[in-house]
């Protein structure tokens, strides 16, 4: 937990934060509404004698009392997907609608992509991209198991994501997106409760390196979004270099702004400064979820609108 000492002055009740980071996390699943309703899932868990509790902040997130949700009938049928509770935040903030054209720029292994497809009711097009081919096969497996048919899978570096494969015959580029999710590769500090070795190899150099990639990915995401469209940027880390500093950079370089959104989980606002750096005050609209606030993993989410 040594790297977390840097957050002593930014996290309220730092001791509670560290305590929470040291506790393991209970299992959660997300109901896949393409195949089942929460009521059907609850009835199936009742039949299997498995205890559960619905999360109060999200209608499809269910905490389950089993260490192996993957060997239950609801999972075999693709009615549920094992997914950390906070991982359900960004897709519900992006809130795509049926018929939208949506990009998930860093999509593997597909927890959020399948959630996006469910929100779209499997209508419209979801492009799920990742630069790691091995992880893409896990994504395809999850999409198929959950019954998704509106997904097109691409294998690109999201920093130079191409619209060309989707170009109509007489056109050079495919259409821009209505909504884009950038669930960026990150230093994963917020997953410490699930992976106790998440901080192995942590260094400020490593953080700075990933931040460079994140900036490139978020900029490209904005470029491929239509005017008035939305981009959600999320990470499972606390490092401001990978969160507010990335937003600050992109606000300077691209035509976009941060927008407010609702989140029914306890959270903090984005940090408007870190060490000697002041950020664009808009970054306060981002939300930080700390493990001790809701007994979950840690998460960061921001919503941007691309300007006309």
């Amino acid at each position: 937990m040594e790297p977390f000492q840097r957050y002593r002055d930014v996290v309220d009740d730092f001791e509670a934060f560290i305590d929470a980071c040291e506790r393991s996390l209970s299992m959660a699943v997300r109901v896949n509404t393409l195949k089942a309703t929460p009521e059907q899932v609850e009835r199936a868990f009742d039949e299997a004698g498995i205890g559960y509790e619905r999360a109060d902040w999200h209608p499809h997130v269910v905490r389950v009392e089993t260490d192996t949700p993957g060997v239950t009938w609801p999972s075999i049928h693709g009615w549920v997907h094992g997914q950390e509770e906070v991982s359900a935040i960004p897709a519900s903030v992006l809130a795509p609608e049926p018929g939208d054209r949506v990009l998930d720029a860093c999509a593997a292994p597909g927890s959020k992509a399948t959630q996006l497809a469910a929100e779209m009711q499997d209508e419209g097009t979801l492009v799920a991209n990742d630069n790691n081919l091995g992880r893409l096969s896990a994504l395809r497996f999850n999409c198929e198991r959950l019954g998704v048919t509106n997904v097109a899978v691409t294998n690109r570096d999201a920093r130079n994501f191409s619209l060309k494969p989707f170009a109509a015959e007489d056109e050079h580029e495919g259409p821009q997106f209505d909504r884009v999710l950038v669930d960026a590769p990150c230093s994963c500090e917020g997953t410490i409760r699930k992976n106790p070795d998440a901080l192995d190899g942590w260094s400020e150099d490593h953080v700075a390196g990933i931040a460079g990639v994140q900036k490139g990915i978020l900029r490209r995401a904005i470029q491929v979004t239509r005017d008035g469209g939305h981009v959600v940027y999320s990470t499972c880390t606390f490092a401001p270099e990978e969160n507010e500093a990335v937003l600050d950079h992109v606000l300077q370089k691209e035509d976009c702004r941060l927008v407010d959104y609702d989140l029914a989980l306890e959270h903090d606002d984005g940090l408007t400064g870190w060490r000697d750096t002041e950020f664009d005050p808009q970054v306060a609209k981002a939300k930080r979820v700390y493990p001790h606030q809701n007994d979950t993993g840690g998460f960061f989410t921001a919503k941007l609108e691309v300007s006309a």
């Binding site: 198929e144 509106n150 997904v151 097109a152 899978v153 294998n155 494969p165 495919g174």
Partner: peptide
């Protein structure tokens, strides 16, 4: 493969809908 909606044909990508 079955795909909801349509796309240009041919298309060289990793996946299109469900097998």
């Amino acid at each position: 493969w079955i795909f909801a909606g349509d796309a240009p044909s041919p298309i060289a990508i990793e996946g299109l809908g469900m097998t």
